[in-house]
Structures are given as structure tokens and as C-alpha cells.
């Protein structure tokens, strides 16, 4: 097991290296930079200062020199400076990371809380009215884009009904660390988390429902029935565990993708997180932030696959890793 993980981590090194080159080249290939735009907006900026600034930041150096500088920083855990925010990228990201993980975890938990029961009901009682409702719900959520659904939720529950705040992650008037502070955090979380969760249930429900329908007719289920196992125990002991395997395989990705954040959710709800930071950084050509974020989500994906394999080997005795 340990050997397996070590080997997988070793394999990640060249993968990450290739990823870093790709990201760097793509970032450089994007038109514009973080400073040129300020010529028009910033009165203190003229062509001369711009030139000097660029020189100082090494923006005229050959690509490979810039890359070497960047990768060296990366290896030291230094993700560079944000030109726009004038702060180290690490602290910029760290500040937003918590919000994103909080939101992501809420979305994930809510999504499974909704999807697993619905998938089980649909799979077990196929073709009943309950199943037909679930399939209908699934079509609806499948056809609805997140940004429209989130806007709709925001409009109804935020603006029209006024039940939930419409922006931010916490009320700035409450004192940090008090009970009111945590309640406010929760209050800000509910609406975006619910919108994200409802739209992301589709795949899980569909998967689980189909998996149960397939497992139901497997021979070992017949064996269980022939033993005299009651219908409900046939489901809990034999069908569900086997049907949940593919869901468990996704869990690894899901957990790790928490840190990637959701561009749509965070933008629409004005929720200060990684997704929002990513979007604004691209718009402002704040490349050091963009490349750092893409690197992090690349790393997260690799860890996600590893995590999925480990989870799968834990729940399925047929898959053994050594």
C-alpha cells in the first residue's frame, strides 16, 4: 500500500513538470499583461515607468529564464507576487481557500444527502410514481445550467423573499469568532451550497439508479433470495453495497475538487473564494495568480485519482494495491 502510494507520487513528478510547462506557455501566450492596462486608468503610470516596471519584474527576459525563475519559486513554496494585489500569491490564495473549501464541502455533503436516497428509491422501486418523479427531477436539473439556476435561487430567496443574504461570505458587522459570526457564515452559505448541490445531484442519482437496476438482476442477488433473506435485507446487504462502488470511486475526485472552487457559484453569489479570484485574475491578466491556481488544481486532480484508487481498494476486495 505504502509502496503503491510512493510510486504514484513519484510518477506525479514528471506529470506536474509537463503541466507546469504547458501552463506557463499558455499564460504567456495570452494577449496583454497586468500592467499595460493601467496606462489608461492610472494617472501615475506613463510609458517610461511602465517600461521600467516591466524591466524590474523581468518581463523582458527570455521565456526560459522567466520559467526557471517561476519554477524555482514554486519549488520553494513561493508562488510569486500578485502584481494587481501587491501581495504574495500564497497569502492571497490562503485567505480565500477556507471559504472555498467550506462552500465545496457544503455542496458535496448536501448533494450526496439528496442524491443517494433519491438514487436508491428510484433504483429499488423502478417505474413507480416516486421513481418517475425522480427521473423527472433529474431531467430538470440536467437541463438547467448552474448559472441560470443559481441566479434564479438568488432572485427568489435572496431578493424577492429576502430570506438569505445576497452576497459575501459573512456579515462584516459581526465580531470574528463569536457565535453570531458562525451563524452569519452559515446563513451566507446555505443558498449557494443548495444551488450547487441540487444541480450536481444528476450524475450521482442517475449512476446509482442504473447501478441498482443492474445489480438487482445479478445472480448473487438470486442466491441471497434463495437463502431466504428478506427483501429489505437483500437490498441493504447485497445490492446497495455493490451499487455504491462506482460512487465511491468518484469520491476521491470530489473531495479534492473542493479546493478548485466554483467560478459560477462564487461569482453569482459574490462569495469571496478561489473561483472568484481565478476569474478576476484572468480578466486582469494577473498571471502569477492564474498559473498558481491552475497548478494547484492540476495537483489536486492527480491526488484525486490517487485518492479514488485508494478508496476503491478499501471498499472493493477485488482491487488490491500493494
Amino acid at each position: 500500500m505504502l509502496k503503491f502510494i510512493l510510486r504514484r507520487i513519484l510518477v506525479m513528478i514528471p506529470q506536474l513538470f509537463i503541466l507546469s510547462i504547458l501552463i506557463f506557455l499558455l499564460a504567456k501566450a495570452m494577449p496583454g499583461d497586468a500592467l499595460t492596462g493601467q496606462l489608461a486608468s492610472n494617472p501615475k503610470m506613463d510609458a517610461q515607468t511602465l517600461h521600467e516596471l516591466k524591466q524590474k519584474l523581468g518581463m523582458y527576459d527570455p521565456y526560459y529564464v522567466q520559467y526557471a525563475r517561476w519554477i524555482k519559486g514554486l519549488l520553494h513554496g513561493n508562488l510569486g507576487m500578485s502584481i494587481i494585489h501587491q501581495t504574495p500569491v500564497t497569502s492571497l490564495i490562503a485567505g480565500k481557500m477556507w471559504n472555498t473549501v467550506l462552500l465545496g464541502a457544503a455542496v458535496l455533503i448536501l448533494s450526496y444527502l439528496i442524491a443517494i436516497p433519491l438514487g436508491i428509491i428510484g433504483g429499488r422501486w423502478t417505474d413507480t410514481w416516486a421513481d418517475k418523479m425522480i427521473v423527472g427531477y433529474n431531467y430538470l436539473t440536467y437541463a438547467t445550467p448552474l448559472f441560470i439556476f443559481a441566479l434564479l435561487m438568488l432572485f427568489i430567496f435572496g431578493f424577492v423573499l429576502g430570506w438569505f443574504p445576497t452576497s459575501g461570505s459573512v456579515d462584516i458587522r459581526v465580531e470574528n469568532g463569536t457565535f453570531a459570526y458562525y451563524m452569519s457564515k452559515l446563513n451566507h452559505l446555505i443558498l449557494p451550497a443548495l444551488s450547487g448541490a441540487i444541480v450536481s445531484t444528476t450524475v450521482t442519482i442517475q449512476y446509482l439508479r442504473n447501478e441498482i437496476i443492474d445489480t438487482k438482476i445479478k445472480d448473487f442477488v438470486k442466491t441471497a433470495r434463495a437463502k431466504g433473506v428478506s427483501e429489505s435485507k437483500v437490498y441493504t446487504r447485497h445490492i446497495f453495497r455493490n451499487s455504491l462502488l462506482p460512487i465511491a470511486a468518484f469520491l476521491g475526485y470530489d473531495i479534492v475538487s473542493l479546493i478548485g472552487g466554483s467560478v459560477f457559484l462564487e461569482s453569482i453569489y459574490g462569495y469571496p473564494g478561489i473561483g472568484q479570484l481565478f476569474l478576476t485574475s484572468i480578466m486582469q491578466r494577473d498571471f502569477s495568480v492564474v498559473t498558481a491556481l491552475v497548478m494547484i488544481s492540476g495537483l489536486a486532480t492527480l491526488i484525486g485519482t490517487l485518492l479514488s484508487d485508494i478508496i476503491l481498494s478499501a471498499v472493493d476486495p477485488r482491487i488490491r494495491i500493494e
Binding site: D219, K222, T223, A224, N242, R318
Partner: peptide
């Protein structure tokens, strides 16, 4: 009851 195919007649997770 004894079933035909022993490869599929047993629960793989038990």
C-alpha cells in the same frame, strides 16, 4: 438452491 455459474452466484464484496 444451487446456481449454474459460480463466478456470478456469489457476492463479490462478502
Amino acid at each position: 438452491m444451487i446456481f449454474q455459474d459460480p463466478l456470478t452466484a456469489l457476492n463479490p464484496l462478502m
